[in-house]
Amino acid sequence: MSVAKLGVALLLIAGMIPAASALAQARAASASDVHIEGHWVRKDVGGAGSFGGLADQIPPAQLTAEAAAGRGRGGGPGRAAGPAPSGRPNAVGVPYIVVERPCANPGRGNGALLINPDSGGIHIIENTDEVILAGERGGVRRIYLDGRPHPNLAGRTPTLAGHSTGRYEGNALLVDTIGLTPGNVQGGGLRTPETHLRERIEAAADGKTMTITYTWDDAKIYQKPHTYSYVFDRLPAGSYAFEDWCDAGDPIEKQSIVPPPQKP
């Protein structure tokens, strides 16, 4: 190759590099256009129309004989229910007490509700080292993206959020969680601190919906991994997180309705 040809070739290559770089940047921008950051609310895909109907759509977990035999133990305290109904209507002005300990949801502040979000919105913030999932009805989950391993569970107190690590596969965020408190799982499943929960969190190509596919994996509990999905609608741009106010000191929080005066 002559010196002239070499020069021309170098000039062409030099001109192509910025173009290729621009193309790569355009691809990156395109990929980043579909992201999971934002405000989401669970969608009733099958038109179940009720929480019970939604729960019925989840395929039943295939438990091992040992897990099935031990079913029913544990599961956490939950909210304390009110007194059993008497079967007779309350007098005018006497409220129905439906919960003795309002606002005492044990998941508040630690992510229990976010493993399987309820009807409240969820909010996702994506950062280089960490993704945060926060729920309007309480709870924050952290998903570490910096390559750290899970901690040794020995001596570690299980939590309602567990310990989550993640990585991206295309636009999908793949999450692995262990260290959860023992308890129940949607579809009749169970979990222990050793159980792995794998989640695939992915927005649709148009960015308007997001699917979280949950897979619970534990050979001691499941005959095969227990998998189901939730679908979410993205809330409009400019949306914001509601503050879920609940005052346990307010007697009203215990009540359902107060029977009003009736017409004679």
Binding site: S32, H35, E37, G38, G109, H123, I124, I125, E126, N127, E130, I132, A134, G138, V140, R142, A237, G238, Y240, A241, E243, D244
Partner: peptide
């Protein structure tokens, strides 16, 4: 405080109290 900046907001998560706080960047 755990503070994380995303595309649309900065979230501030206290370790021991309350829910998270959001500083919205998208409006």
């Amino acid at each position: 405080l755990d503070i994380r900046q995303g595309r649309t907001a900065v979230i501030i998560v206290p370790e021991n109290a309350s829910g998270p706080r959001y500083l919205y960047l998208d409006r």
